[in-house]
């Protein structure tokens, strides 16, 4: 059983990692969700298994370790909240750009352009400024 759950966590991590490396924001959000689930599952696996740890329902000797469950619950809540925020950001990005993709960093291009020929620099600079102003508008 534990091996099965550990394998599930591994699978979640594998899928999550793959999704995070793609360029579409919606996939990245899903990937982060899967990574979070994998981590939370591992946290649950860290404790002893047994019956529900509610006092008075069964023998305390056979209780599952409640601490990882409490920690897991907290971690799940945090994952949930943060995923919500990430979705909101992806939505805002889609509203602003109309694309579901991670945008390039203009400043990086600008710095890269400074190392090119002097003539090219001016062109590139104007292009970057034009793009920035467009964005600012």
């Amino acid at each position: 059983m534990n091996v099965l759950l550990a394998a599930t966590a591994a699978l979640l991590f594998a899928c999550g990692t793959w999704l995070v490396t793609t360029r579409q924001l919606s996939r990245i959000v899903l990937g982060i969700g899967l990574l979070g689930h994998g981590a939370n599952l591992l946290l649950l696996l860290a404790g002893r298994r047994g019956s529900a740890p509610v006092f008075g329902t069964s023998d305390p000797e056979g209780f599952a370790d409640p601490l990882p469950q409490a920690l897991g619950l907290t971690a799940i809540v945090i994952t949930f909240g943060v995923t919500l925020f990430l979705l909101a950001m992806a939505y805002r990005s889609w509203q602003l750009t109309g694309r579901d993709e991670v945008e390039d960093d203009f400043e990086d291009r600008f710095v890269a352009a400074n190392t090119a020929d002097a003539a090219e620099v001016d062109d590139e600079e104007h292009a970057v400024h034009a793009i920035e102003q467009e964005e600012g508008a």
Partner: peptide, 28 residues
């Protein structure tokens, strides 16, 4: 909510979240 803030914020949030997931793994 400007476009460049969202773009840069996205990188920041995703990186932090991956680190947080790793932190949970480390805790486990």
């Amino acid at each position: 909510g400007r476009a460049d803030q969202i773009r840069a914020g996205m990188t920041y949030v995703v990186i932090s979240l991956i680190a947080s997931a790793l932190f949970v793994v480390a805790l486990a």
